[in-house]
Design a protein around this nucleic acid. Structure first.
Length: 646
RNA sequence: GCCAGUGUAGCUCAGUUGGCCAGAGCAGCUGAUUUGUAAUCAGCUGGUCGGGGGUUCGAAUCCCUCCACUGGCUCCA
């Protein structure tokens, strides 16, 4: 007998070799029907795997993240079985679970899979699921495993095997499909009910573009059809928030093939929005001691040789521009920091000048590959809300903290509460891609970790995500369909001051090396606005709305009064327009509602006679009639408060 | 750059076993209407069907190629 400890601390005895599922069954059949996997001594196990020693166990059901991962991983196997049935002889690489769903990378040989085939695969999967085949775990010696895949001619699994030790190799079989797999798996395929294969894509083997491209099939499954349906509805809803769609509908920005891909054109309403954001940050920055600077869009090649950007990105960036006579080479600036370093160097600096905070909304241009461009989130020309803080080593922490405060202030003002603070460090192994000394990297990485901790940020550490010149603290936010994007970023840099030979005279009258902090709370205006659009579904808070008020005269008899109102609003710095079309009021309201304009002022006979206005709030309907002064005050108060527009 | 898919009017879309001068709604313009809280009516304009090449008596429709976009991969200072 073995002692099994349950999460509530209860201990009960079971026969040696009982599985979690056996134990669940003894508790109740209902429970057994829901158990997908088990947590055995803090390891996720198959619910069907025999437990031979005393253990602490917890049943994992659909509400548990590990159970979901197990469920989706098993779904990947189910899909693989269906694919193998459709295309015999294909070879499989890996099929992991994702945050929402799973994929499997497959070498289809000469077969091509089309979108239409996904439907057939779904049907096949449902059939196989219905058979409720159990997942059978089998420990196997490395030698036997190698033999098995050699006979199959499966170089992919052999490659996986080469990284595994004898004694830790397991096979899983369900129905007619056997796979090298660490597991765990759900008890049987019958749990899988709602099945949707969502996408088909190419993926380089091992993520290396030099390798062969495998076919990746994405899917998501649920324990019942209803949950799948709900998920699909949610996806549809999310697509309605897509900034590319809303940007078009609200006339915020556009692209032109003739101007060039990835080069956004800001339309008047989008430009208004962007300028509101810019002046918001500018104001905050001036209050916290930043000095605005302005630098040109190009810089000499030598500038980027000095900064190290040429060596790192020279080949992969827009090619140089040359002067016609001298053949002197210039590059479009991909970064603002080299220019700012030169501003630092423009005068001898004293420790009394530090920290020196140079800020610029600097537009930069980077060559991004065709396939990578995406709406406003990934473009070739964008504007950073950039600043570089030059400070003494002793000031780094304090400055870094102040920057975090600023970033958080920006995020809070826009009600971005759902972000991840990511500490981006060097790759653990491959350090060839970074410049600068190990010692400086250590100091920089350590400072970021400490400061983030002192600030009480919930952080995740990502190795290999650092910039080539220094580690970063990145603020990541998800878009409408769950993709993560870097918005705000703060970076400690010991390298550029070295490369540009930046110095200051210290109290001791000797030369010292300053430290640089790169930072951008928005990151890029383009990307930030993209995320902002998706965040509020185009219903911008009043302080940002390109048009805050639409004046709707009932008929043109009231145009004069309407213009009167417009002038008064303009004098109060309220962004307003008149809808002077010869349309019925219902139509004007509808159009203003769809344009997501926060306030509509209906003006007719009554309002004119009483010198009032009828106020209507977007999405909320009629608020009744008010004096204009009252309304202006109400608007000002809301603008001041920066309330989110719900 | 790689894999797969898409590309018809400013926008959203119909039109494929190849065959009447390529359609609708919205937007726009003109006229009528002067309107009370989510679509007034009528008429009109607008497309070398992404570009180029090919097959064919005939191509939006089939083939090739280039371009752009979409979903991923790689990359992201």
């Amino acid at each position: 007998m073995i002692n099994i400890t349950f999460p509530d601390g209860a201990v009960r005895q079971y026969e040696q070799g009982s599985s979690a599922l056996d134990i669940a069954r003894q508790i109740s059949e209902g429970l057994a029907r829901k158990v997908l996997a088990a947590d055995v001594n803090n390891e996720v196990w198959d619910a069907t795997r025999p437990i031979n020693n005393d253990a602490k166990i917890k049943f994992l059901m659909w509400d548990d993240d590990n159970a979901k991962s197990t469920f989706w991983h098993s779904s990947a196997h189910l899909m693989a079985e269906a694919v193998e049935g459709m295309f015999p002889g294909v070879k499989f690489w890996v099929g992991p679970p994702l945050e929402k769903g799973f994929y499997y990378d497959i070498d289809l040989g000469d077969n091509v899979i089309a979108e239409d085939d996904l439907k057939k695969l779904e049907v096949k999967m449902a059939e196989l699921a219905k058979q409720n085949n159990v997942f059978v775990r089998k420990e196997i010696s490395k030698q036997d495993a190698i033999k098995y895949f050699e006979e199959k001619g499966d170089e992919y699994k052999l490659d996986l095997l080469s990284g595994l030790n004898d004694g830790e190799i397991t096979f899983y079989t369900q129905g007619n499909f056997t796979d090298l797999c660490r597991g765990p798996h759900i008890p049987g395929t019958g749990f899988i009910k709602g099945i949707k294969l969502t996408a088909i894509a190419g993926a380089y083997w091992k993520g290396d573009e030099k390798n062969k491209m495998l076919t990746r099939i994405y899917g998501v499954t649920f324990p019942n059809q209803k949950e799948l349906d709900e998920y699909l509805v949610l996806l549809e809803e999310a697509k309605k928030r897509d900034h590319r769609k809303i940007g078009k509908e609200l006339e915020l920005f556009t692209f032109s093939e003739k101007v060039g891909m990835g080069l956004p054109l800001w339309l008047p309403k989008g430009a208004m929005l962007r300028e509101r954001l810019q002046s918001f940050l500018q104001k905050a920055q001036i209050e916290t001691g930043y000095l605005p600077v302005i630098t040109p869009h190009i810089g000499r090649k030598e500038l980027y040789i000095t900064s190290g950007h040429y060596e790192k990105y020279g080949k992969d960036s827009f090619q140089s521009i040359k002067t016609p006579q001298e053949g002197e080479e210039f590059f479009l600036k991909p970064m603002n920091c080299p220019h700012h370093c030169e501003i630092y160097k423009a005068a001898p600096r004293s420790y009394k000048d530090l920290p020196l905070r140079l800020a610029e909304f600097g537009t930069v241009y980077r060559y991004e590959q065709h396939g990578e461009l995406h709406g406003l989130t990934r473009v070739r020309g964008f504007t950073q809300d950039d600043a570089h803080l030059f400070c003494m080593p002793s000031q780094v922490k304090d400055e870094f903290k102040k920057v975090i405060d600023l970033v958080l202030y920006v995020f809070e003002s826009l009600s971005f509460t759902d972000y991840t603070a990511q500490v981006s460090l060097r790759d653990k192994v491959d350090r060839s891609q970074y410049i600068g000394t190990d010692e400086n990297w250590e100091i920089a990485e350590q400072s970021i970790i400490e400061v983030a901790e002192e600030k009480g940020l919930k952080t995740v550490i990502e190795y290999g995500e650092a910039a080539f010149y220094g580690p970063k603290l990145d603020f990541m936010v998800k878009d409408a369909i769950g993709r993560k994007w870097q918005l705000g970023t703060i970076q400690v840099d010991y390298n550029l001051p070295e490369r540009f030979d930046l110095t200051y005279i210290g109290e001791d009258n000797a030369k010292h090396r300053p430290v640089m902090i790169h930072r951008a709370p928005f990151g890029s205006m383009e990307r930030f606005i993209a995320l902002l659009i998706e965040h509020c579904a185009g219903k911008f808070p009043l302080w940002l709305a390109p048009v805050q008020v639409k004046i709707l005269p009932i008929s043109d008899k009231f145009m004069e009064y309407a213009e009167n109102v417009l002038n008064k609003l303009k004098n109060a710095d309220i962004r307003a327009e008149i809808d002077d079309r010869s349309e019925k009021i219902g139509k004007k309201i509808r159009d203003a509602e769809l344009a997501k304009i926060p306030f509509m002022l209906v003006i007719g006979e009554r309002e004119m006679n009483e010198e009032k206005i009828s106020v209507r709030r977007q999405g909320k309907g009629d608020l009744g009639s008010k004096n204009l002064e009252e309304f202006v005050e109400m608007v000002n108060e809301e603008v001041e408060s920066k309330r989110a527009f719900v």
